[in-house]
Computed example of a mutant assay.
Amino acid sequence: MKTLDYLHLNENKVNNVVSALHQLLADFQVHYTNLRGFHWNIKGHGFFVLHSKFEDLYNDAAEKVDELAERILMLGGTPENNFSQYLKVAHIKEVSGVSCGSDAVEHILETYNHLIAEERKVIDIADEAGDVVTADLLTGYLKEQEKMIWMLVAFSTCSCEKK
Results as ranks from 00 to 15, higher is better:
4 L>P: 08
8 H>P: 09
11 E>L: 02
16 N>R: 09
17 V>K: 00
18 V>Y: 06
18 V>P: 06
20 A>E: 13
24 L>M: 00
30 V>C: 06
31 H>M: 05
32 Y>V: 00
32 Y>I: 00
38 F>L: 03
41 N>R: 07
45 H>W: 09
45 H>L: 14
49 V>P: 09
50 L>Y: 03
50 L>Q: 02
51 H>Y: 08
52 S>L: 11
59 N>F: 10
64 K>L: 13
72 I>W: 05
72 I>A: 13
77 G>I: 05
79 P>M: 14
79 P>I: 04
82 N>R: 15
90 A>Y: 06
92 I>A: 01
94 E>T: 09
97 G>P: 10
97 G>R: 07
103 D>K: 09
107 H>F: 07
108 I>F: 01
109 L>E: 10
116 I>S: 07
117 A>Y: 07
118 E>W: 12
120 R>E: 11
122 V>C: 12
122 V>H: 13
137 L>T: 12
138 L>R: 03
139 T>G: 15
139 T>L: 05
140 G>T: 13
140 G>Q: 03
141 Y>I: 07
141 Y>M: 05
144 E>Q: 12
146 E>G: 05
147 K>C: 05
147 K>F: 00
152 L>W: 10
154 A>L: 04
155 F>S: 13
156 S>E: 08
158 C>W: 00
160 C>S: 15
162 K>M: 14
163 K>F: 15
